[in-house]
Design a protein around this nucleic acid. Structure first.
Length: 138
DNA sequence: GCCAACGTTGGC
DNA sequence: GCCAACGTTGGC
């Protein structure tokens, strides 16, 4: 089962809003990048990912789950891009900041750290386990 | 199809 | 607020 990481500026869409959306979830709109799109297309129902607050906070704050696979993004006039639906699963007990992640040698090759501009990215099993541990989740 | 110019993201 | 990284656009 693959793992993912989703970036959002809290002023545009925050973890709190994701939680408020509840179990029915919400579409992850607005991806306009080809690499990010390929990642969205690869996602399967039930796969989990980290929810990262960019700019403000700069921390992984929670875990989300894919509840609907790739379909067209109605906010994209060109029709080239799509989206998945996500629901909040659980918050990190302790947010894992970008700073913390940079200090952890096992995360040195993480995309989050090396390509700050990719908004939807894959996370390896090891990175997933390390960050969960850092965030206080079993 | 190449590549310069431009726009956007996001860390600092 | 600045600017590096990088994606996209458009002229040729």
């Amino acid at each position: 089962m693959a793992h993912w990481l989703y970036k959002s500026e809290p002023s545009a869409w925050s973890w709190d809003e994701q939680v408020a959306a509840g179990a029915k979830g919400t579409p992850w709109t607005g991806v306009r990048n080809h690499s990010a799109k390929l990642n969205l297309m690869a996602m399967k129902i039930g796969e989990r990912g980290f929810f990262y607050h960019s700019n403000e906070g700069k921390a992984i704050v929670g875990i989300v789950e894919v509840i609907k696979e790739y379909y067209p993004d109605h906010t994209d006039a060109s029709g080239r891009f799509g989206m998945v639906d996500l629901k909040a699963v659980e918050p990190m007990k302790r947010p894992v900041t970008l700073d913390d992640a940079k200090k952890e040698p096992r995360l040195a090759t993480m995309i989050l750290i090396n390509n700050s501009r990719l908004s939807v990215q894959p996370v390896t099993d090891e990175e997933w386990a390390v960050i969960r541990e850092m965030g206080g989740l079993a």
